[in-house]
Design a protein around this nucleic acid. Structure first.
Length: 564
RNA sequence: GGGCCCGUGGCUUAGCAUGGAUAAAGCACCGGCCUUCUAAGCCGGGGAUCGCGGGUUCGAAUCCCGCCGGGUCCGCCA
């Protein structure tokens, strides 16, 4: 509802500025602690008109005319150089009505199709904490954009023909893949061992190269072996993702583009349109503004990841209006090269969300060296930790119920933690800190939701039903009620902003603030023991809050337990 | 060495793109609140020369220049 209020303020302010005959560029509207919305336009005008911002603000306010009916604005006032606007009761009322109707968010609009690629971890082993950050950011963005009205498709790009798969295939012929382990963990054991062997004995490297050549030329037996390894890893990875509440709409295999000839087509086109140097059979693409040339074909004639990625992006581009790639910081140069190369091919470049790495106190993460913490291990431990907390508080529940709550709380805490910080911030992962279920993180929000559910349950038991109520009946008696509604009204606005800027931590922050408002309301406004009319009204408010808490958690991919 | 990113109370961060009303939160710390709907809660308190130095501006955490510290990339790996 805040969006509608802002739109009305824009309209009213524009009219006033015209009436006062000021030429302006921007309305300079912003949220403020001092008002429901505030304009700084007087500052901008002061220079041109050689008047003090204060007098300009006062003059503009004199020209403000509020509509007589259906307005959401109660008043406008100058506060020094600022022009402040305030909402009225109708605004509060409509906010709740909208939530009830389910139109509080903007999900009815269609804004176009977005393909968002995330996770895309190599199928050479299980996901580790670095991939976790990628997956959680990617899935969160997808959810925000969906909620903001876009048609979103998530894709996992599977590097099913890189060298690391060749290493595993080679290794599997010497070491048996364990069958009593989660498949991705069984694969990585072989990968690590094989890498060690290759490092120790030089001759092995040529065997792996031969394997890659055979795969690219389509040797059926080799292709089968590759597929077995890739599918094994992938099934384990999917399991981990599912546990995180993440599901990709589509898995795209890079080999697809090789087989269909799309990669060859890219090479041909770049030869034609780009500045390509030849070094034997190798092809080096010189890109404008980037010192490092992009190798698109090796001396031995095999292709590289980036070349195949170009074909993938061309294909993606033709299927959507916007592309978003969630990449780790190590892919930054690649992302620039990708952008330039796609430009040459007249293909729209994707938008990149680059996140800084998660490192361990002992140094950076490396799957090859076996130096990582797997996502599975982390999830296991955090759920255990959450279980201890639930167990401490809820002796009355049976084990299954407690485990179910612990699962939601543990995974929720993990997801919230990953998302509350800007992606460009480097994270040093300390296990004990991650397990320390932070008070104002996901559990805090989930707890508020559980409290709302608890009130509604108790109300139903006593036979208090939710009823429709009329505008005149909405009379917030307490400041905390009003503030809660004000916060509820901003859900759509926050989602819109987060979608626009691709910033998930805005949603995380909003979730925490909303939970906090509800907790204050909970403290000061008894619901079940209030007078009839007040109870109806508050019950209605609790129900609305529950809905929005549930929705905001959903945007973060976090489940909302009914009790905890 | 070059490119990009980060540097805000003891710790972790928001704000920075588009400069404006007392620099905003969480953790930790100190002190209160369970006879009313779940205390994973609520209320109060202390604590920041916004890395350093210059500049632009009526006004700088925010913009510009320089420096310092940390990260990351600079593979015919992915």
């Amino acid at each position: 509802m805040f969006i509608e209020f802002k739109t009305e303020v824009e309209h009213v302010l524009k009219e006033a500025l015209e009436k006062a005959s000021y030429e302006y560029k921007e309305l300079e509207l912003a949220e403020s602690d001092h008002a429901d919305i505030s304009s700084r336009v007087a500052f901008a005008l002061a220079g041109n008109y050689k008047k003090s911002p204060k007098s300009i603000a006062e003059e503009i306010v004199k020209h403000i005319a509020l509509p007589t009916d259906e307005t959401l604005i109660s008043s406008a006032a100058a506060a020094g150089p600022y022009i402040n606007f305030y909402v009225n009761d109708l605004y509060l009322h409509k906010t709740l009505l909208r939530i009830k109707e389910g139109t509080n968010s903007t999900d009815e609009k269609k804004k176009g199709k977005i393909i968002i690629e995330h996770t895309s971890a190599n199928p050479d082993g299980p996901l580790h904490i670095g991939h976790l950050r990628n997956a959680i950011i990617g899935d969160g963005l997808a959810r925000v954009l969906k909620r903001a009205g876009y048609d979103v498709e998530t894709q996992y790009y599977v590097n099913d023909m890189g060298r690391q798969i060749a290493v595993v295939v080679w290794g599997a012929e010497r070491i048996t893949i364990a069958t009593n382990k989660k498949p991705d963990h069984a694969v990585v054991d072989v990968y690590i061992a094989a890498n060690r062997m290759v490092e120790e004995k030089e001759g092995y490297l040529s065997e792996i190269k031969a394997l890659m050549g055979n795969y690219e030329s389509g040797d059926e037996a080799v292709v089968k072996k590759y597929e077995t390894v890739v599918n094994k890893s992938l099934s384990g990875i999917k399991e981990s993702l599912k546990r995180l509440n993440i599901q990709h709409d589509r898995f795209v295999f890079e080999s697809k583009f090789v087989r269909e000839g799309a990669v060859e087509a890219v090479v041909k086109e770049l030869l034609q349109k780009g500045n390509v140097k030849r070094d034997g059979a190798a092809l080096l693409l010189q890109l404008e503004g980037i010192e490092k040339e992009l190798v698109i074909r090796r001396t031995d004639g095999t292709l590289l990841y980036t070349t195949r990625d170009l074909a993938y992006h061309r294909w993606k581009s033709s299927r959507c209006d916007r592309m978003i790639d969630v990449f780790g910081k190590d892919h930054e140069l690649v992302s620039q090269q990708l952008t330039k190369a796609l430009e040459l091919m007249d293909v729209r470049a994707p938008e990149f969300v680059i996140f800084a790495f998660v490192s361990l106190p002992t140094g950076s993460v490396s799957t090859r060296a076996g130096r990582y913490i797997s996502a599975d291990e982390l999830m296991e431990k955090i759920e255990e930790r959450a279980y201890e907390e639930v167990d401490k508080r809820r002796n009355d529940l049976d084990g299954d119920m407690k485990r179910e709550i612990a699962r939601k709380v543990g995974i929720g805490a993990l997801r919230y933690d990953m998302v509350k910080v800007s992606p460009e911030k480097h994270i040093v992962f300390v296990f004990e800190d991650a397990l320390d279920i932070e008070k104002k993180g996901a559990p805090f929000v989930q707890y508020s939701h559980a409290r709302a559910c608890s009130i509604l349950r108790a109300a139903a038991e006593r036979g208090f039903l939710l009823e429709e109520y009329k505008y005149s009946e909405l009379l917030p008696r307490e400041e905390s009620e009003k503030e809660l509604i004000m916060k509820l009204a901003k859900f759509g606005y926050v989602v819109e902003g987060a979608a626009l800027e691709l910033k998930l931590h805005l949603v995380a922050k909003y979730a925490r603030e909303l939970a906090e408002m509800f907790n204050v309301f909970y403290k000061y406004c008894p619901v079940l023991n209030a007078d009839d009319n007040l109870r109806k009204e508050r019950l209605y408010l609790v129900d609305c809050t529950k809905t929005v808490l549930h929705n905001v958690l959903d945007v973060l991919g976090i489940e909302a337990p009914e009790e905890m």
